[in-house]
């Protein structure tokens, strides 16, 4: 397996007239977890939206390869089917749609798009039960409308539950630690770690080192002003935590 799961080459993206990504290069081989750290406004979240295909952004240069295939022409649903999963920083409420219903709709939509048969109800229940147990998600929560009235912790656990069920090739976690207390952080991290797999890659976006104590990355990248300015092992995160981003801004300039 020499083809990396994700390869981003010289990616430039803008929203309206403002350029936000200014030449991102990033390669994540299968099985690796990469972290991107950067201050607010550095373009981290934009990178996650651009990967998932959100329409608001215009790609002006570069390419994104998933398993060697360029995905820039794909719409968000096609990218999801191809294996990109984005765990949202602020998961969206879907009133009136039970979480269980949503999970089933999503799983079957992806299966259908891949030409697979639909899950039987017992198979679906089994899968939800297994994945839910890991994340302390009970049947009561699954009956509630998705994300409506969920606590911060519940929202993030529901995101990881979807990730576990949809089995993506690339997991993009956008500020998954925001709004979590330490207990919730542990549950969520445990759920994420359980999904680490030789055939799956992860991109963990955060601006606190704290999360990386729980989800230990193979590579840490520092993001500043729309591009990666420094890469290193997990100790780079500790350095950042100690010194702040100022040094790296200087490097970038």
């Amino acid at each position: 397996m020499t083809t990396p799961i994700l390869e981003i080459r010289n990616l430039h993206a803008r929203i309206e007239e403002r350029e936000i990504l200014k030449g991102v290069n990033l390669t994540i081989p299968a099985g690796q977890v990469h972290a991107i750290m950067g201050r607010n406004g550095s373009g981290k979240s934009t990178l996650s939206y651009v990967l998932a295909g959100k329409e608001d952004y215009e790609i002006t240069e570069g390419e994104i390869l998933l398993n060697g295939e360029n995905i820039l022409e794909m719409d968000p649903a096609e990218r999801a089917v191809a294996g990109i999963f984005l765990a949202f920083q602020y998961p969206i409420e879907i009133p009136g749609v039970a979480t269980m219903t949503f999970l089933k709709a999503a799983m079957n939509a992806q299966r259908k798009a891949r030409g697979e048969s639909e899950l039987s109800t017992p198979d679906f229940m089994r899968a939800v039960k297994e994945a839910g147990a890991q994340l302390n998600i009970d049947s009561d929560m699954l009956k509630r409308p998705l994300n409506v009235g969920f606590s911060g912790g519940e929202k993030k656990r529901a995101e990881i539950l979807q990730m576990a069920l949809l089995k993506p090739a690339l997991c993009v976690l956008d500020e998954t630690d925001s709004g979590l207390d330490i207990d919730a952080l542990q549950v969520v991290s445990k759920g994420v770690n359980a999904l680490r797999d030789a055939n799956r890659s992860m991109l963990v976006i955060t601006h606190y080192q704290r999360l990386l104590n729980h989800i230990v990355p193979d590579v840490v990248h520092v993001f500043s002003d729309g591009r990666i300015v420094e890469s290193g092992d997990k100790d780079l995160a500790l350095q950042l935590e100690a010194k702040g981003y100022a040094d790296f801004d200087a490097t970038a300039a």
């Binding site: 295909g53 968000p76 649903a77 990218r79 999503a106 939509a109 979807q162």
Partner: peptide
């Protein structure tokens, strides 16, 4: 976008 990101 959220729904489509899940494959719908």
């Amino acid at each position: 976008f959220y729904c489509q990101q899940r494959g719908l």
